[in-house]
Amino acid sequence: MAVSPFPFTEHKSVELDNINNEAVFSAAYFVDERKPMNFPVKTIVLLASLVLASAASAARPECDVAADLYNQQVENVAEKMAAYRQCFAESEGNDDCAKEFKRLRSAQDDLESAVGDVQNYCY
């Protein structure tokens, strides 16, 4: 498998880890700085911070899947392009290579969809 030109999973993981840390530290700061808070308020604040951290972590697998699909589609387009070039090289003007072009066009459509998924889930 080829190496991704865009390491989406690493970028998103670091970003989400920072969000998780900020949410937990913000909640902890709020609880520590407000001495007269009663137990139910502290509990609500801590539960809210856990929900925020869970929501940020839940987005990570979607980005990972989108990035993997993108990488697969890039490879697929490259394979279809190679087949299209090979058809012309071997046809010597006897084949318009429409079948190969149709497969390339389909691979490009799949790649465009994968790019949309990366934009939706990773940024």
Rank of each mutant, 00 (worst) to 15 (best):
D96M: 01
F30T: 15
A53K: 14
E15L: 15
S57C: 06
S49W: 12
A55D: 09
Y123D: 03
A98L: 06
L111M: 09
D32M: 09
E92Q: 09
S49D: 09
Q73R: 13
Q108Y: 04
E112I: 01
R103Y: 01
I44A: 08
L69M: 08
E92D: 05
A56Q: 07
F39Y: 14
N18A: 14
E15N: 03
L16V: 10
D96S: 03
M81T: 13
K99W: 01
E15I: 08
S91F: 01
N20L: 11
A114M: 06
A78Y: 05
A2Y: 04
K12S: 07
Y121G: 00
H11G: 04
K35G: 12
D17M: 14
A98M: 00
P61D: 10
M81Q: 09
M81H: 04
E75P: 05
D68T: 12
S106L: 08
Q86D: 11
S57P: 02
K42V: 13
R103W: 00
P61W: 04
G93H: 03
R60P: 00
N20H: 02
T9P: 01
D68S: 12
K35A: 14
K102E: 04
A59I: 03
L104G: 01
Y123C: 03
L69D: 10
Y70P: 00
A2D: 10
M1V: 11
Q72H: 09
T9D: 11
D17T: 13
N21I: 02
L47F: 14
Q108I: 15
A66F: 02
P5Y: 11
A59L: 12
C97A: 01
M37Q: 15
K42N: 03
S49G: 11
E10L: 07
N21G: 00
A66N: 09
L47C: 13
S49N: 09
T43Y: 08
N18D: 13
F39T: 15
C63M: 08
E112D: 10
A59G: 02
S57I: 05
A98D: 05
A114W: 07
Q86I: 00
R105I: 03
S54A: 14
L47E: 14
E100C: 03
F101R: 07
V14G: 09
N18V: 07
V51K: 11
M37I: 15
V14N: 07
Q119P: 00
A59Q: 08
K12P: 02
E92T: 01
E90A: 08
M37W: 15
V118H: 09
V118C: 07
V115N: 08
V118W: 11
L16P: 02
D64Y: 09
C122R: 03
A107R: 03
Y121R: 05
T9V: 14
S49M: 11
M37K: 15
S113W: 02
R103G: 00
L52T: 03
V31I: 15
A66T: 07
E79Y: 10
Q73V: 01
S13C: 08
L104K: 06
R34T: 14
L50G: 12
E75R: 04
